[in-house]
């Protein structure tokens, strides 16, 4: 399902056979990069009682002042399509794509994970980091900071294990997501 500003978007053609259960959806929203645009999107979610599980935003095309906002939200299909239409209604929004409906999208997140400890735990942390393809970006005699990139679920698992190995703190970027295949947004 895709909503494109200015195109005939008769919901007649948007009706799809959809599973009726609540699940999380990844939405890509292409917006004008202007002051307040993020506040509009976030305000829409809080004002209408939709939840945001993750939200990332960054400029993707400097010359045309366009940003891409990637939002993970949960809901049943009618709620999700209502969210998409509400987003599509915002003036600075160019396009809204539901990557989850579009198919098995590529989803990646980056995390920085700090662990502290000595001896056996420290060795274990290092072994796990290698197994997860995490890189060491900082090390002292009694700490590491790992950088890991992957699907959110992989990061969740890695972080879960690091809790056992002296996790001190964690920073995650939120989701970057694209549809597979040759076509673009």
């Amino acid at each position: 399902m895709m909503i494109v500003a200015g195109q005939s978007q008769s919901a007649y053609f948007l009706e799809e056979e959809l599973p009726s259960t609540e699940r999380s959806h990844t939405l890509s929203v292409l917006v004008d990069n202007e002051p307040g645009v993020l506040a509009r999107v976030v305000g829409l979610f809080s004002g209408r009682g939709y939840n945001i599980e993750s939200l990332t935003v960054s400029e993707i095309e400097h010359s045309s002042h366009m940003s891409r906002i990637t939002i993970v939200t949960t809901g049943r299909p009618p709620v999700i399509s209502q969210i998409m239409h509400q987003l599509g209604r915002l003036v600075p929004v160019h396009k809204v794509i539901n990557l989850t409906w579009a198919g098995d999208a590529l989803e990646r997140e980056l995390a920085l994970v700090k662990v502290a400890g000595k001896g056996e735990m420290r060795d274990e942390a290092l072994r796990l980091a290698q197994a997860f393809n995490a890189r060491i970006v900082d090390a002292t005699l009694d700490s590491y900071v790992f950088e890991i990139t992957g699907a959110p679920a992989d990061i969740d698992r890695f972080v879960g294990l690091m809790k056992e190995c002296g996790l001190v703190e964690l920073a995650r970027t939120g989701l970057a997501a694209l549809a597979r295949g040759k076509t673009g947004i």
Partner: peptide, 18 residues
């Protein structure tokens, strides 16, 4: 004319945006 009005409260059989 507003697609967000459609299927917001009541699910309809034939939405026509225009």
């Amino acid at each position: 004319i507003d697609p967000s009005s459609i299927n917001k409260n009541v699910v309809v059989d034939l939405p026509i945006v225009g």
